[in-house]
Design a protein around this nucleic acid. Sequence first.
DNA 1: TTACCTGCAAAACCTTTGCAAGTAC
DNA 2: GTACTTGCAAAGGTTTTGCAGGTAA
Lengths: 125, 125
Amino acid sequence: MTRQRRVILEELRKVRSHPTADEIYQMARKHLPRISLGTVYRNLEVLSDQGLIKKLDVSGDRSRFDGDLTEHVHIRCIVCGRVDDFPVRPAVTLPEINNDCGYEIGGFVLEFSGQCPQCKKAEVC
Amino acid sequence: MTRQRRVILEELRKVRSHPTADEIYQMARKHLPRISLGTVYRNLEVLSDQGLIKKLDVSGDRSRFDGDLTEHVHIRCIVCGRVDDFPVRPAVTLPEINNDCGYEIGGFVLEFSGQCPQCKKAEVC
DNA sequence: TTACCTGCAAAACCTTTGCAAGTAC
DNA sequence: GTACTTGCAAAGGTTTTGCAGGTAA
């Protein structure tokens, strides 16, 4: 656990904004001006492998990272791309959601993930 | 509607595999050997704008495209990245799902999309 | 000490774009 | 004929990687 890795983890835990790698790089530079973008990417990978952070596999373009490990749902703006936390409640309806969070909801993505039959079979270790 | 655009649309409608732009490029090259990757990207953009295909905004890395416009849920392999259609039914449970589709399900992503309060306010036209 | 990590820079990769020639309508 | 489209190649942006020096344990 190097200073770089600790700073990245702390900064990520400080915010609720699901920043991109470059945004995390800018945040970390305030504490470690010599840190490089490559180091940020490598540490985000390591921290994600260790389960200390989560890499958000949604939203198409750039990867975003989340220091909040509790199970929660995200909501993304189709205009600016920002990702916010979404307050889940049982049996919500779309009008309720719109009132709750201020977003104008246009749709949603539901995607399960796991291993397909082929990869499950090929799994040797 | 050029030959290139028609071939891309036809190929995309032929498969259930949610191919990437490069995979669509390889498929189209079988019919039009001189087609370029740039043309594929441009036509995927146009077709998506016209609502003739759907661009999948999930799965992190590369964009994937879908010729099936009916509302349906996707499932992605966390090992090889392939995206399959997912048979939605009311009130499914995880064990049922595992039996149904052959996948070993590890989790899911639920993401709403829309306009955040700031962008909604800034929307002028 | 030793394995891992860093900063830097270059490379890799996907996607977009400028341009001159070509095509659909 | 005109506006749009193409192939090609170059550029753009994000992410990964090779390397020599540095650091944590």
